[in-house]
Computed example of a mutant assay.
Amino acid sequence: MMLKRFEVSNFKQFNSLQWDFSKVRNYDFSMDCLAESPSGKFIKTALVYGRNSSGKSNLGFALFDIVQHLVDKVKKTDAYTYYANADHPNDPVKFSYTFLLDDKEVVYSYSKSSSIELTGETLLIDGKEVFSWDEKENIHSFENLSSFGFERLNFVYKDSKLSFLRYLANNSPLPENSTIRKLMDFVGSMLWFRRVDRGNSFMGLLSVTDHLDSFIISHRLTDKFEKFLNDHDVNERLKVAKSPDGREGLYFAHKQALPFFAVASSGTLALTVLFYWQESLRISKPSFIFMDEFDAFYHYEVAEKIFNLAKSLDIQCILTTHNTNLLTHANTRADCCFLLRDEKIKPFSDLTEREIREGNNLEKLFLSHEFER
């Protein structure tokens, strides 16, 4: 199950943007960046580059808008305060997602007048319309519901703050193999996260937040966490101790114990977030991950380890970065590296007339602006 295509218009700085994950070249290296499906190969692990203010973070927020209105998971409402494009504030914001859910292609499109106010939705399964409504166009097409098994739906609906897809999923007995259930499960398991100076931030996947130290201590992961830090060149010992208020917490084990989260460096805290999600994934497996500025606090060798960890996951994972050291064909490939520029996102392979070969130095080509001409 994966995201095949994404489109957005009039969201924040994006007038119109399309992203196709099915556009794969016939390179015979770094195949672990791809996933196989009955419909062919798809991009599984992607790197997104772009200058400051090019929209890398907003791209992640656009992708995760679907989480905001379809499921009850951790949300990040501050990311959606300034919603519509400032040059067209009264025009609708439109999104379209094409998913491959086992053997079905599902297209879910919707429009909004604000982050919480829907103005229309359409759902297609294998090209057949399940339902469609649009207030502006005065469209209310629900007559196909019965052919998709919704004969007994208690149809009392029209609340523009409530998605009809969500209403449909929550008011119908859906069998395990239901395509709509698979869609809702996929969206409910999407995960966006990053580590920034002002703290940790994530949305999706979980219904409640958890303190990192509480998670590590309650799951008896202190020794494993210490080894994880040591493996990533943070050579410290850890212990669990009580603070003056009686709460258990993590400490650096010195003669004078030091509270972990008070004195740890930005890089160590970034590794802590990564460890938390690595262990959380064993409990609640995500369907799709977006890691924003994933290596902002990491040494380049640590960043490469993390990228290889992302590649080892059997789910789609998108990582935004400025780190050009990752641009080797041992790590990735030109059709899995994207440049976000001028409100468009394109793979490196589409941004040059040069035939990319395994022997090409991808980093050198990037730094020489080969993909910006």
Rank of each mutant, 00 (worst) to 15 (best):
L212N: 12
N331D: 02
Q68D: 09
S9L: 02
W277F: 15
I180R: 00
N52I: 04
T272C: 05
F288C: 04
L206G: 00
A310W: 07
F348P: 12
L191T: 03
S114H: 08
A62W: 14
L206Q: 13
I180E: 01
I116N: 10
F371N: 13
G50D: 07
H254G: 02
F164R: 00
S207I: 06
F193D: 02
K158L: 10
V107F: 03
Q68E: 04
K161I: 07
F150G: 01
K73F: 00
I116C: 03
G120C: 11
E176D: 15
K364A: 15
W19I: 07
N144C: 08
L168P: 03
S349M: 01
L274H: 15
L309M: 14
K305E: 07
G40T: 11
K41I: 09
D231K: 14
S266Y: 01
G359M: 00
L340W: 04
D295R: 10
K346G: 03
L123V: 10
C317I: 11
A303E: 14
F142D: 01
D210F: 11
N52E: 09
F61D: 15
T81Y: 13
L212A: 07
E370D: 06
P286F: 00
E355W: 02
R195T: 15
S349E: 14
R341S: 10
P259W: 06
S284Y: 07
T222V: 15
E363A: 09
K239D: 05
S207Q: 13
I66A: 03
S218K: 07
V187H: 09
